[in-house]
Design a protein around this nucleic acid. Structure first.
Lengths: 303, 303
DNA sequence: TAAAAATACTCCATAGGTATTTTAT
DNA sequence: ATAAAATACCTATGGAGTATTTTTA
């Protein structure tokens, strides 16, 4: 393998076409430079320079090798520079997973802020179910996940509560029980419900079911929709009512749909939903550190 | 500057994620490998690997640097390999200049043969006036020139006669003086002539004029055309007659044009035209050597 | 306690320096 | 005679080896 020092020495001679001047440029003496070029030619097995009649010229192969030497040093410098920027958290890739970014409210602002602050950073957002998110974090395929639930305890995973929000009931604007500012969920036991599919939310989905069960009924699921705007569309179309987080209600609006707060059933049943950020504590990505420092966590934390 | 040895050592550790195994792969002991990676990190100014809890992991910067290391070594290997092929005359670029390749007959076959024999070689053919050709050869911008004349003697230029050919007279098919197999140029003293512009041919052009002068007249140039097929087109259109080399007559044919040999005027006046190959004898391009060896020169040579 | 990396040192290969010779104009 | 590269020989830096210690699971 040819050392970069040798490439630099060859470049100097090839550019100066004069061993003495090249040696000066390299801050060394002429004889060892001659020896170095000889070594290089020896290693390569073909002649790079012709030294005759008081002049040094490049051979065709020498010219081709010079181009290769330039490209090699350029690749080295660019690679080094890029790695340095990555080490400073100014370049690289940050992979974020989330259930559905629609409705994550302030999180979208953080994404926007991050992208403008670090324009060289590639911010990849992948939407996937909670279970896949946890796997992606564990496998190192993603840097940070935003889930509705705390993942199964792992010594390497860190989770922090980002925000808590009310669960709202979405109902058609002409629904007879939606006259008040807030509603009693028990009055909707006989209503049809529209839900996201089980797989999409896992813990999130279970929490909504649990809320209904606390109100004394198991919801009759009339229709399922993976996309939140489809879900709200179905509510508007009269297919049923739906339970949605507050931030979703803020971003997914519909003329024929109104959102109502749920009156607390008892102090033990939580009508609020958490949003958790989860990452691998072994992940030393400077970008992750910069990203998490931009998030404002709820004072209550979890590991 | 980071040496390639260091890159190889880093790649081994980054791939094995184990100093001992990497050292075995590199045919060296583990301690100096640890030191080498430390040196590398020291030079770079940032950490590439985290060695903790019995496992070695790449940092984000380490991962980025690994990609750079791969690209650097790839550039080096490709550059070396390409230069080796150039040194063997299997790759590279051969720049050929010519007045107009149309009609150079067997030369076109040589081009074709060369391209199929050395498919990796880029064969560049540039058409330009003789004077520019000579300059291009002298400046090293072209490897070999095909001219109608011998260039001004230069200690570095080599010229060899490729072929000699008759000068033919092109005349419209209904021309009254074209009945015989060959013609006497003196009978055309009063005819209009069509010529290529002076600049295009220089010596070639002068030689045609000289032929007319030997026949006792200076040709009346009715029209000029740089392109040979335009020239013949003008002859067909009745704008005049034209003097053309035999190989041009063979490749540029026209229904309304006939070609006639010129009867020798005297033993001293040459009605034949030479085609010379000229190159710089200092040019050590293996491709040039391979190319010239494909040319079959006329037994008469010139330096 | 065992496995892996770091530390401490020793050594020698080789890149580079100095003096000189060779070569070509 | 002169300019430039090659040769000869010497020196010393630093990369690699061996023995040992430190670290952590």
């Amino acid at each position: 393998m040819i050392e970069t020092r040798l490439l630099q020495q060859f470049i100097a001679v090839a550019e100066e076409l004069h061993f003495h001047r090249a040696a000066i440029r390299l801050h060394m003496a002429q004889p060892p430079l001659s020896q170095a070029i000889n070594r290089l030619e020896e290693k390569l097995g073909f002649v790079l320079l012709v030294r005759d009649k008081r002049e040094v010229r490049l051979t065709a192969a020498g010219h081709a090798f010079l181009q290769g030497a330039y490209q090699t040093l350029q690749a080295l410098n660019q690679g080094t520079e890029y790695a340095r920027e990555v080490s400073r958290g100014l370049a690289g890739k940050l992979t974020v997973t989330a259930l559905s970014i629609v409705g994550y409210g302030s999180l979208l602002n953080t994404f926007r802020q991050f992208k403008t602050t670090f324009p060289k950073v590639q911010l990849v957002i992948k939407e996937m179910p909670s279970l896949h998110q946890a796997q992606a974090i564990a496998a190192g395929e993603a840097d940070i996940a935003f889930m509705r639930t705390l993942p199964i305890a792992s010594s390497f995973l860190t989770s922090r509560l980002l925000l808590t929000e009310d669960i709202l009931l979405a109902l058609p604007i002409d629904h007879p029980k939606g006259v008040d500012k807030d509603v009693d969920l028990r009055h909707f036991a006989e209503d049809d419900f529209v839900f996201t599919p089980q797989a999409l939310g896992s813990g999130y989905h279970q929490q909504l079911i649990a809320l209904c069960e606390a109100a004394g009924f198991y919801p009759r699921v009339a229709q399922e929709a993976a996309q939140l705007h489809t879900l709200i569309g179905l509510v508007a179309g009269g297919f049923g009512v739906a339970l949605v987080p507050e931030t979703v209600a803020q971003s997914v609006r519909h003329d024929s749909v109104m959102y109502r707060k749920i009156r607390p059933l008892s102090p033990t049943i939580d009508t609020r939903l958490g949003l958790y950020a989860t990452w691998d504590m072994r992940n030393d990505s400077p970008l992750l550190a910069r990203f998490t420092s931009m998030l404002d966590f709820s004072e209550t934390s979890a590991s």
